[in-house]
Write a protein that binds this DNA or RNA. Structure first.
Lengths: 350, 350
DNA sequence: CTGAAAGCGCTAACAT
DNA sequence: ATGTTAGCGCTTTCAG
């Protein structure tokens, strides 16, 4: 029997209610007992302000009711909307959410997966910046269910949700071409990532589809960030003054490009149309508001969370892989329409 | 002895290495042993891919190495920078971070504090939207150390870090007056919060200091958000066309106001100077970039985290309360200087 | 319906 | 230096 100190435990309650610890546990978990027993236990628990020790519970039950979300960067709006949607499905189910920022370090990503073996989390949603062979190996041995947000080779036996950045890019380029743009530059993020490659493919695909020949000089890569976007745009415009539009791999880059245009006295969209990607809050922040390709970050987060809890509840079904369709959200940076602030018009869905 | 199934435990390792579980534990925790023992244990552990069960460890040790951060809204950039800074201090110390979004629901905030009693987290950083009597009561009985980011009545025996929104607001208003602005409107967030009240006080204080009489009609409140800011600005400009500047309680509102100005054909800052608050990434997103008052979200997160780990390591020292000084970051929305994208010039520190 | 007791996996006395 | 064992707080057989 515990000394008077320390928080109350089942034993404290049992003593006070004059029953066994087993009865305390049963009552508290609603497993039925004589009305009198129930009453006494509940009263004792209430009087002592008893709260079950979650760690002990986890040890016994083998489940922690904790889920982990690991992504490259807390600051990126795309991941923030994933967090929000993941919360939306897991919180009502009583799961706590552990956040892990990997800073896009592959070794850190691997460690997160490996650390599932410490039983501290019931499952993981991993958003890797790029998937290496090491990833696949570690994922295959993961001690707990994992859902990957991103593209995995077909063979991988891991649930995943992917964006369709090829189609998303095609949507953007087509939109620009329909608006009569022909010299379409492309500011991409780091090229050695899956999305980076895919956007490049989409860019060239859409141009060729339209009978144009992609000019490699018009496609550049840089780090993500507003400043990086501005510098890239300046370089492009210095070297190729004829550019009439620019498609950027995320909204930060696009905002940077818009800044550069303003600084050079170019009008958007008259002189330079700008399209971003992710449709984050940033897209509506600038002026003119940015046309942006929504790759469905929120939807991917939600679906990943649903897959994970299904896996946790339901046991083993076949490996799932869903793809979220992109949407083009058209705003003034390509149309010039002076609308009041609003959500933008969705014109294209892949 | 565990059956062959299931993940390896100390017992599995002990059997394989031909030593006791105590030796396994000692070796794995670096408590010294005969070189031969060390070697055998480490080899067995490596061969079996042993990872200690963190839950069992927590139960034994009474510490989970988990910290909780509870804030009103994951999407708000100010909280995102807190998360980032909190991570920066806690992650190197081996803490995991539990994220909890309260959606500004007071009852939810109370629940987070109460749930500390479940021993699932070693400490909490709470960022309440407003502090009620119920908060103080619950905080006083918190089962684990709590640090509050926000203002607490002096009597509360809880560590806290606060922003100085009065001084921050004064900084902004003074800056506008120095630039010759006289009809300064104020778009505030919800007024029934501590920061809301403080910003109002700062606004009136600064105006009076300068010998002006605050015109209540020029100070409005609204929800946070770009659209809300735009609507509020339109209403203000409809009713008071003479307004020459507007100070907003956060960058989203300011961006909305900037949109409204553009829509009405007003030039920023020539016709209307705009100042935001929080100095989030949004401030650099728009064009012109926004002058903004940095209330030090990141710094508050960092300090709160440092206070919390100090409390956890060090035991009990006196209650601490730090205040982070605001900084005014001047950009084109008040000066009109066409600078290339950059961080802005810091001119005022309270 | 209830109580006694085992045991989740680990660490820290304590004894050797 | 190493082994034995108790016990963290809980849930769950297994008897009664």
């Amino acid at each position: 029997m515990p000394t008077s100190d320390g928080p109350p435990t089942v034993e404290t309650i049992a003593a006070r209610a004059g029953v066994s610890t087993a009865s305390v546990s049963r009552v508290l978990n609603g497993h039925g007992a004589r009305p009198d027993t129930v009453r006494r236990v509940e009263q004792a628990a209430a009087e002592l302000g008893y709260v079950p020790n979650g760690v002990a519970r986890s040890l016994k039950g083998g489940r922690t009711r904790q889920l982990t979300f690991a992504m490259p960067d807390v600051g990126n709006p795309a991941y923030v909307s994933m967090v929000r949607q993941i919360q939306a499905v897991t919180k009502p189910l009583g799961y706590r959410l552990l956040l892990h920022s990997t800073d896009a370090v592959a070794e850190d990503e691997l460690d997160v997966v490996r650390s599932l073996a410490d039983r501290t989390s019931d499952g993981l949603i991993l958003c890797p910046i790029r998937v290496t062979g090491a990833h696949l190996e570690v994922l295959a041995r993961a001690a707990r269910p994992v859902v990957v947000i991103g593209s995995l080779p077909g063979a991988a036996a891991v649930d995943s949700v992917r964006a369709d950045s090829v189609s998303g890019t095609v949507l953007a380029i087509r939109h620009l071409m329909e608006r009569g743009r022909r010299r379409i530059a492309f500011i991409n993020g780091p090229a050695d990532t899956v999305p980076g490659r895919n956007r490049r493919i989409g860019y060239e695909t859409a141009l060729r589809e339209a009978g144009a020949v992609p000019d490699p000089a018009l496609a550049v890569t840089t780090e993500f960030g507003i400043e990086a976007g501005a510098r890239a745009a300046h370089r492009l415009l210095d070297a190729h003054p004829g550019i009439d539009s620019v498609f950027c791999a995320n909204d930060q880059l696009a905002l940077g490009a818009a800044h550069a245009a303003h600084d050079r006295g170019l009008r958007i969209p008259e002189d330079l149309a700008v399209v971003g990607m992710d449709d984050s809050e940033l897209a509506r922040a600038g002026h003119p508001a940015l046309t942006s390709v929504d790759l469905g970050s929120g939807a991917r987060g939600r679906i990943a969370a649903e897959m994970l809890v299904a896996r946790l509840d339901g046991g083993a079904h076949e490996v799932r892989c869903e793809t979220v369709a992109p949407r083009l959200v058209v705003r003034e940076s390509t149309t010039g329409a002076r609308t009041r602030v609003g959500s933008g018009a969705v014109v294209g869905v892949a």
